[in-house]
Amino acid sequence: MAETERRINQVSNDVYALYEKLTAVQVTQRTHSHQLTSLGNTVSRIWTTQQEHGERLNHLDSSLAVLTEKVDGYDERFGQIDGRLAKMDERFDEHDAKLDEQGRKLDLIIEALNIRPN
């Protein structure tokens, strides 16, 4: 009988030890569960922020495309203005040449008429 009682006590002690270990495991699992939930929430917030940034980048990309189109339009207009200014420059050169020729002719007339400055 003593051997049987010893074995029963040993089994009882082993069962209590197992329950203590299971209780510790259960506490650890709860802690891990809370941590995983917290990490899940953090990942969700990060994902939301990334989505917002993605939308902002798409908006900026669209705005940049519009601005690039406008700049291209301005560049084309400035090219046209440059062409017009070049033509005006040519005409001014022609007028300068005509005025020089008329000045030369006037000098010849003044010389032929023998007109002196006062």
Score class of each variant (00 low, 15 high):
Ile115Leu: 13
Leu108Asn: 13
Asp82Lys: 15
Lys70Pro: 00
Lys87Glu: 05
Asp89Ile: 07
Glu3Thr: 09
Ala86Val: 05
Asp89Val: 04
Ala2Thr: 08
Gly73Phe: 02
Leu39Lys: 10
Met1Gly: 05
Val25Tyr: 09
Arg7Met: 07
Pro117Asn: 01
Asp89Lys: 05
His34Glu: 15
Val25Trp: 07
Thr49Phe: 11
Pro117Ile: 00
Glu5Ser: 06
Leu60Ile: 08
Thr28Ala: 11
Ala97Cys: 02
Val71Ile: 14
Thr37Trp: 11
Gln10Thr: 04
Phe92Gln: 15
Gln29Met: 09
Thr37Pro: 01
Arg91Gly: 03
Arg7Glu: 13
Phe78Lys: 14
Asn9Val: 05
Ser44Asn: 05
Leu67Glu: 14
Val71Leu: 02
Glu101Ile: 00
Gln50Ala: 14
Asn13Gln: 15
Val15Gly: 03
Leu39His: 06
Pro117Trp: 01
Met88Ile: 05
Gln35Cys: 03
Lys105Cys: 07
Ala24Lys: 08
Asp82Asn: 15
Ser38Gln: 09
Ile109Phe: 03
Arg116Ala: 11
Val27Pro: 01
Lys105His: 11
Gln10Arg: 02
Val27Asp: 14
Ala112Lys: 08
Leu60Tyr: 12
Glu94Trp: 03
Thr68His: 13
Arg84Gly: 04
Arg116Lys: 15
His59Asp: 10
Glu52Asp: 15
Arg7Pro: 00
Arg77Gly: 06
Asn118Cys: 09
Leu106Arg: 06
Glu101Ala: 05
Asp93Phe: 02
Lys98Leu: 06
His32Asn: 15
Val43Cys: 04
Val71Ala: 05
Leu60Phe: 07
Val66Asp: 12
Gln50Phe: 12
His53Phe: 07
Thr28Ile: 14
Thr28Tyr: 07
Glu5Met: 06
Glu76Trp: 12
Asn13Asp: 10
Asn118Ile: 08
Lys98Asn: 02
Gln102His: 15
